[in-house]
Simulated scan of single mutants.
Amino acid sequence: MKQWMLILVCSSMLFLVACQNENESTDETTSNTDGNTVETEPNLDVETNEDYEELTNEEDTEEQDTRVEPVTEEDIEVQYRSNEKNWAIEPIEDGIEENVLLLTIDDAPDKYALEMAQLLKELNVPAIFFVNGHFLQNEEDYETLRNIHELGFHIGNHTMTHPVLSDINEERQKEEIIELNVLVEKIIGEKPKFFRAPHGANTDYVKDLVKQEGMLLMNWTYGYDYFEPYMDAEKLKEAMISGEGPEVDVNYSLLQPGANLLMHDREWTFEALEDIVKGLRDKGYTFVNPEAIEIPES
């Protein structure tokens, strides 16, 4: 009898130990919605899933805050002014880079302006495109101008019909300038900041009007593509890089720090443009962003 009692007690103890082990195993699992048990992952020292998500979001936010924003026109500091005696672009203060050039394209957008803008964009060269109203006659022309502007180039005023301003009365001078300002603003959403008179023929009235309109009066230092001997890409390239135009009696170089380079929307100019840019860079010059040029207050 005592032997049977001993066997019964031992069996009971084994049963209790088995039940305890089963309960401990169950504590390490949870049930999903269909009643099956699934493994649970350890918390990795994070008290709750909400805490873990909050920590992760904070890390993402910190990473985003360190990203560098792209440079915009608002970030460009005004460092240069236009010298009205020789039309060169000069540093406002000592210590600012002097070996700069300003690149400008007149009579746009005729045939090659957009392609010229795309090329200059690839070469990372800023420029001003001075436009004529008679090249802005329809929506296709408007779209071309918008594309040039959206590539990052300034649009300048070169009058509606390209007259010699000194040959017309003041009322017409005003119409030529104001009407184009209105048209350009309608197309690209902003008025021109720069004005260049056709043939460089300004009048006292034009100078005052341009200032009232909040624009900078601008001529040029040199340009050769409108002279017949330089209506050839190879000859034009040599003249623009050297600054010399011997075939039009310019036997000395007009290339100097701050030179305001005049070119036009022409086939030969487009063909020579890349070589001109590279040749001038090889001489140690960089190209100034028009946004860095001071606009006098009206």
Rank of each mutant, 00 (worst) to 15 (best):
A272V: 02
P198K: 01
V206C: 04
L145F: 09
N157I: 10
L14W: 10
M218W: 11
Q79S: 15
K235F: 02
V100C: 07
F195A: 03
D249W: 09
D141K: 06
Q118D: 09
V277I: 12
I89D: 01
E54G: 08
W4G: 12
N99T: 00
N99C: 01
H134L: 14
M1T: 12
E291R: 15
A18M: 12
D275M: 06
E84T: 14
C10M: 15
A197K: 05
M1A: 15
Q79N: 15
I168P: 07
Y142T: 08
D107I: 01
I89Q: 03
D208R: 13
M231I: 06
F195M: 05
E69K: 14
G258Y: 04
L119G: 03
E97R: 15
A233L: 05
E77Y: 06
A113Y: 01
L255I: 04
E139C: 08
L145V: 11
L151G: 07
E73Y: 12
E28W: 00
E175T: 13
R67M: 13
N32F: 09
E175P: 07
E22R: 00
E122A: 10
P91Q: 01
L119R: 10
L145K: 09
D265Y: 05
L8K: 11
M5Y: 11
K278F: 06
Y224W: 05
Y205V: 03
N21G: 06
K278D: 07
L14C: 12
L236C: 03
S298C: 01
G214D: 01
R281Q: 13
V210H: 02
E24Y: 00
S166W: 07
A239M: 03
K111Y: 11
I177C: 04
D204H: 07
E62M: 14
D249V: 04
I76C: 07
G223W: 02
P296I: 00
N219M: 11
T33M: 13
D94V: 08
E271Q: 15
T33F: 13
Y226D: 11
N202K: 12
T161K: 10
R81M: 12
A88Q: 14
G258N: 04
N147K: 15
L217I: 11
L8I: 15
G35L: 05
D60P: 00
L14N: 07
T203D: 01
D208Y: 04
Y142M: 10
N83T: 04
G95S: 04
V184E: 02
E97D: 12
K211F: 07
K2L: 14
T286M: 08
L14F: 12
L217Y: 09
W4E: 14
G258F: 06
T72W: 07
G156I: 08
L44Q: 14
E98Y: 02
K283R: 10
Q256C: 09
K193A: 10
A117W: 01
S242K: 03
P257H: 01
T286Y: 01
E140H: 10
N49Q: 11
T72N: 09
Q64P: 03
T56L: 15
Y205P: 06
Y52Q: 11
